[in-house]
Write a protein that binds this DNA or RNA. Structure first.
Length: 412
RNA sequence: GCGGAUAUCGUCAAGUGGUUAAGACCUCGGAUUGUGGUUCCGAUAUGCGUGGGUUCGAGUCCCACUAUCCGCCCCA
């Protein structure tokens, strides 16, 4: 019989790992709530068209990484990210009519068909936030502050925020035109990917990793265009105002003009938070402003900003979570009495187990010492006298008390 | 899609062509019929990713396949 294994790029989250995930989720709820975010849970699959239109059909995510399948003549896709789904729900549920800002957060699995490697799986998990309805840079700042605050609450204090502004559609078009113009003489020398991007999305050219392309971009006349402040006055004002907020809040950042991001929907602010301890997949968090997405997906013109974090990557930066011990393990040769006592203690909110398989006393005690803070000994003598012996497994102190005083003992 | 590496018990591993495939941890049992976490003893791979080949003899050499990991691309 061949054994069925997990699918490539997917992983079980085993009981010993679950504590780490619960920590991420509990902190998310705690921190996001302080900023007025409420959780939203959208379906794991959506109409394929949502991602084609939402994420953008020039992106790698849509072009080659989606899990798409047909059912009843409909093309469906496992979500590769959750912004499109949240925006769909925002529109469909009339949230544009709610008093702005509308602040939402989510967590859950995402699916991308990529070659797995360190920090990258085909099913992976993100936590993210989206804020709708505020066009002012204060929203960008709050969203970034929130990301930093969440990371801090997890004990990650020294991650670097990278920041850039992509401008608005108008100034970006001009910038794209300039890039195309200055690169035109070099077109034949660019790599195949870059030649494709030249027409579709020239901004993506800038962070090409191919050495020959990097060399081309180093040329002074090309650097001059790349480094030029192409963004229009309004966009520049938005950007500089955002930086003022971040300075005032003590959020450290570095500007990175090459930070482009592969998603089409961003405008103005884009940012990433990176760590040096992650290997080559070093971004923990990525996000930005996407003012045209809601309208593009058929909703009313609504500003929006948000980000997503990779939970696997977060976990790999954090220390392991120690498994929690039981309050007590009942050691007894009478499963009947042990079970009854266990229920009493469980009803009182205690974490309690007992031996279900009639093991010897010493084996039961050994199990107790490995899993619990207290051994609750309920032997024949104790049962006859309606007593219970409680042994503190750390200090080895043992006392015998009336049965109804057990709870009291466990709290000492 | 393109590179590179690896594959021996539940886990970590030794093994470099020659009987019966070390060891450690985990698990289980015993020493110990009511006192553990220390100690001692014992059990646990007819098997070395799969399929072929070379050889008197293959975990070890050769070929193919598969899987996993790492890197490129891209991203969280």
């Amino acid at each position: 019989m061949t054994i069925i294994k997990v699918i490539k790029g997917t992983k079980d989250i085993l009981p010993q790992d679950a504590g780490a995930w619960q920590r991420l989720e509990a902190k998310a709820l705690e921190v996001f709530s302080k900023y007025g975010y409420r959780e939203i849970r959208t379906p794991i699959f959506e109409a394929t068209e949502l991602f084609a239109r939402g994420v953008g059909d020039t992106t790698d995510i849509v072009n080659k990484e989606m899990y798409t399948f047909e059912k009843s003549d409909r093309s469906l896709t496992l979500r590769p990210e959750n912004t499109a789904g949240v925006v769909r729900s925002f529109i469909e549920n009339g949230m544009a009519r709610l008093s702005a800002p509308v602040k939402l957060w989510y967590k859950g699995p995402m699916f991308r068909y990529e070659r797995p490697q360190a920090g990258r799986q085909r099913q992976f998990h993100q936590v993210g936030v989206e804020m709708f309805g505020i066009k002012q840079p204060s929203a960008d700042a709050e969203v970034i502050m929130l990301a930093v605050d969440y990371l801090k609450s997890l004990g990650l204090n020294d991650l670097v925020v990278e920041l850039n502004s992509l401008g608005c559609p108008k100034c970006r078009e001009e910038y794209k035109a300039k890039i195309k113009e200055v690169l035109k003489p070099e077109f034949e020398n660019l790599c195949e990917d870059c030649r494709n991007r030249y027409e579709k999305n020239p901004l993506r050219l800038l962070d090409c990793k191919v050495e020959s392309c990097k060399a081309i971009f180093e040329k002074p006349e090309i650097q001059k265009v790349i480094q030029s402040d192409f963004i229009c006055e309004e966009c520049a004002e938005h950007y500089s105002s955002l930086k003022t907020y971040l300075d005032k809040l003590g959020v450290k950042y570095v500007e990175n003009k090459l930070l482009v991001r592969g998603l089409d929907y961003y405008n103005r602010t884009v940012f990433e938070i990176k760590s040096n301890n992650l290997g080559s997949q070093n971004a923990v968090c990525g996000g930005g402003r996407y003012d045209s997405l809601v309208k593009n997906l058929g909703g009313e013109d609504t500003s929006a900003v948000g980000w997503a974090m990779g939970m696997e990557r977060l976990n790999s930066l954090l220390p392991e979570v120690e498994p929690e011990k039981l309050d007590g393990y009942i050691v007894s040769n009478s499963p009947l009495e042990a079970f009854a006592l266990a229920q009493e203690l469980r009803d009182a909110g205690k974490k309690v187990e007992f031996d279900l398989s009639n093991k010897k006393f010493t084996k039961q005690l050994e199990k107790a010492s490995k899993t619990a803070k207290f051994a609750i000994i309920l032997g024949e003598d104790e049962i006859n006298l309606n007593k219970v012996s409680v042994k503190n497994l750390e200090t080895s102190e043992q006392v015998t008390v009336d049965r109804n005083m057990v709870l009291n003992q466990l709290e000492k």
